[in-house]
């Protein structure tokens, strides 16, 4: 008897959860569906069944060279992440394995730089970029996003590295491992998962950053965030084209995001919730 009741409850929870989940996911789903409609179809009233045409995708590419913006997004997001890792890995490493009295203060200070509102430094950054000819360049934006996300990268790496037990190093040393051997054979394999998760989350954050990417670019270095924002003053029918551009812009990051749910919690709460 008790089992039957609990199965009923489970079915009830299942129905409730699926309804809520589909409602939340609906705007994304509807965007994907609309991207496979023609423009006249898209405004012809509510319909969940598209004709399956790919003309919107073709038009977005033909009219605005969509691929250029996509490539800019990839270069800026991946480039800033790699740069940040190069700088952050040694820092997080030393803080995790040879902490001093000041390690905690340095970490807290790094976190505090993340609290600075972007608009507060919009004017000086804009002027610096203008005077050094960095406006609308990929390199300028890459460095910018690297600096913005550096505190999160250091923090995330630190929380991962801290979980590598120090005793394992002692054991390796007892077995006669050299410093090089320690790093290559013992530490690196244990650190790689943490570095990979950090990388994943940081690419997501950089890909979706929508203040500096919009304000510091015009055409040449504009990533997808800036391209999509340009749809806010549209000419003519554009529902299906907006949907196609949006679907392509969010698909890669959505899939990456699904794989990094856990890391997201950890990274965005600075290790406060695991």
């Amino acid at each position: 008897m008790a089992r039957a009741v609990s199965t009923n409850r489970k079915i009830g929870f299942t129905v409730a959860a699926w309804v809520v989940a589909l409602l939340i996911f609906f705007p994304i789903l509807y965007t994907i569906i609309t991207s496979f409609k023609s423009e006249t179809e898209a405004i012809a009233g509510f319909s969940l069944i598209p004709s399956g045409t790919l003309e919107s995708y073709a038009e977005v590419q033909a009219q605005s060279n969509y691929f250029k913006f996509f490539l800019n997004s990839v270069i800026i997001a991946v480039g800033s992440t790699i740069l940040a890792l190069v700088v952050a890995v040694p820092a997080a490493w030393s803080m995790a394995f040879s902490p001093t009295k000041r390690t905690k203060d340095i970490l807290m200070w790094m976190l505090s730089t993340k609290m600075m509102p972007a608009v507060a430094v919009l004017v000086p950054i804009y002027l610096i970029f203008r005077d050094t000819n960095l406006l609308d360049t990929r390199i300028g934006l890459t460095v910018m996003l690297m600096l913005i996300n550096l505190p999160i990268v250091v923090w995330m790496l630190y929380t991962y590295f801290r979980e590598i037990p120090g005793e394992i190093l002692e054991a390796a040393r007892m077995d006669g491992a050299t410093l090089w051997g320690e790093i290559v054979y013992v530490l690196t394999p244990m650190a790689v998962p943490g570095i990979a998760s950090t990388m994943l989350l940081n690419i997501i954050l950089a890909w979706n950053e929508a203040f500096w990417t919009i304000r510091l670019t015009t055409t040449n270095a504009a990533p997808l965030t800036a391209f999509i924002a340009s749809f806010s003053s549209p000419q003519g029918l554009f529902w299906a084209k907006l949907s196609a551009a949006s679907t392509l812009a969010i698909a890669p990051i959505l899939i990456m995001g699904w794989f990094s749910q856990r890391q997201l919690v950890r990274g965005l709460t600075f290790g406060a919730v695991k």
Partner: peptide, 8 residues
């Protein structure tokens, strides 16, 4: 999923 959708 909505969290991974870029703001624009």
């Amino acid at each position: 999923s909505p969290f991974f959708v870029m703001p624009p």
